[in-house]
Design a binder for these strands. Structure first.
Lengths: 208, 208, 208, 208
DNA sequence: TATGAATGAGCATTCATTCAT
DNA sequence: GATGAATGAATGCTCATTCAT
């Protein structure tokens, strides 16, 4: 149970060494997503970032720390995206249309899924032996389900399911799965057919 | 991207060596599921199976071949389970009840996922960087979607979706995901609440 | 300095188990020559001989012992070939023609070179650590130079070199090299041009 | 039969790492020559060079690459030695004496073989099972025969052989063999007796 | 004797990480 | 801070050899 892998080395918050840090982050994200965490060596990341091997370790304690940093960035980005979504919805102040809400929700989650499945798998495994990862993952999960609940709550009296909590969870899982398969290009059908079907299914389930 | 890892070793299929093979398969299944493919060394598998390192390679060409063999065994087991299901359904010859069909379908898929669900995630990830895994997975997916179509077809004229193929795919994905999370104990809710909700959702979507 | 690797297991001189031994010898010779000693596993030899792995070790103490046995057979075969040559030459009892003698000598040595260079290299290395091999190799070398001397002796008074011993050695080396390159298919020219040139060279050197 | 082993590693050709590279080259040369390619492990080479195992692979793609590099270095050294020889001969501008030329040629080749003669045997053997080695060897052979032709050409009208090309090849092979045996200390006679005999033989053959 | 499954030391190679410059 | 050469433990895999049947 290591607990220090997430601490960024010292704090080179000054100067333009931040640029180097970002180049490493970008290279790491790209290579992890393309080749997978295990097939990406720190040497390759450094090379892709245009820095020396040692420079990598000046910015990140180890390879895991880079993954953790990427995850934190991801969580923050998702959080911001979702906040934007709620703020915008609130400002429109239109009479709530359940079908449109469903569609927008699906599209929102689609936008927030740039973080490859390989990375989540890796984080999942690392969670077993590293408390920082475990916490980071648990928080992200709780967060996203909370957000979903927040989105559905205004429609609660129109939602005709017996078990709201379970429905909430179920909808979250389903959307994530379909979005995943679209983002990763897994499904034999394209997003243009899959997304409307998904919206249909969820809408009928909740509001029919 | 090698493509010959699935070729079986000579053929020590006879005599007591089958026991060893099964011990290796069992050890591989457990370790791959617990620690992931990359964190499981062939040495560890051999040790867990109670055999020498070399014995592993007497039975499987390489580590990849073991995972592929596990997957093949899984696919075969699923296939047999599904055949049993269809045979039994046919023999009952009752007027088809869509809700009951949905419930039975979900339970069927649940039964077929008692076997190493983590392996699917692992294979899914490996598919991105290895053709053999990609092929093995694609075949299974095509197979299972075909079976699902076969189950839904008798209800086709009652199913009120625009795009039957997409609905078919969507239902397959969704059921698999939920079942996965139940079998793996991931979701914070239990099967008693999740399965009825899932059945509801699918039934409303297709037959509402 | 091991000294027991050459001892054939027990002595299965009886029955038809000799057939098995010969099949292993034949398989070993072919595979050693084709793929080299190091790329030929005892398992492959056994398979090529159509016997089980263990059977190999019932007949030969180890892989080295097989090589040693093949060498011994080779030496014996060469010896017999040479004896035939001398007996035949003697029986003809013609006035000795130096040019014809040279040609026949070259052809004789060509006939006796079926034992690949990989094997000689291997034997050479093994000689450093194994007395049996060292002895076996030394004997073969002495033997062949002795035979050459025996062939040249009748012409001694016609041979116009200052240093007969050195000439003897030189001729032996040269013939062996050229013959080697022909047998192994190394030289870019073929035997039809190389052998006459070799004969010319040696004849001019000794008898010009 | 891989064919990409000769590709050079990144390019650590700068700074003090060159020293390490040379230590590895020296260790490889010594061990390959003493024990043969297959009996020399990369670990042993690294240890002999006084570096860690991984350092070996920072400098050479694999074991094969080291041997190829050694061979390339050797070929270059030989080439330079030969160029020196020709330049010097040209500058002397004496009336060409065939016997002296023969002697100088033999001595030249002797000088070019101070470098790892055992490696040639090793490469020769490896040529049978590896294209990279075969190519490397073929090139050297073509090169050296070309050089020999260049040396003999001024004497062409005095050389009394029917088949000049074959004679050229034959002389090259013979000199190499004898020089080999001298450098390696194989022959029971010493260079003082062998070299004059060799010169005699070649001179009588070509110019008698 | 023959069998072939089992053995485990050994090898080539990788890669996360360190550290002297 | 940046560099990149050096490290060495660890991995996947091979193969000569043994031995229970």
């Amino acid at each position: 149970m290591m607990t220090d892998s997430d601490k960024t080395i010292d704090s080179p918050k000054q100067k333009r060494s931040m640029a180097t840090r970002h180049r490493i982050l970008a290279a790491g994200l790209e290579l992890f997503a393309k080749d997978g965490y295990h097939h990406t060596s720190s040497k390759k990341i450094a090379a892709a970032a245009g820095v020396a091997t040692g420079t990598f370790y000046n910015h990140f304690k180890d390879k895991k720390a880079l993954l953790l940093a990427l995850h934190r960035d991801h969580v923050i980005a998702v959080h911001e995206e979702i906040e934007r979504f709620f703020n915008q919805s609130a400002s429109i102040a239109s009479p709530p249309d359940s079908r449109q809400m469903m569609r927008e929700l699906v599209e929102l989650i689609l936008r927030t899924h740039q973080f490859g499945p390989e990375l989540h798998r890796e984080l999942h495994i690392l969670s077993f032996t590293d408390d920082d990862f475990a916490t980071s993952m648990r928080k992200e999960r709780e967060n996203s389900h909370g957000k979903l609940r927040q989105a559905l709550l205004p429609f609660r009296n129109r939602i005709r399911v017996d078990d709201f909590e379970t429905a909430n969870l179920l909808v979250g899982m389903v959307v994530e799965t379909v979005v995943h398969s679209i983002v990763m290009g897994i499904s034999p059908l394209d997003a243009d057919r899959l997304l409307p079907a998904l919206t249909d299914m969820l809408h009928r389930y909740l509001f029919n």
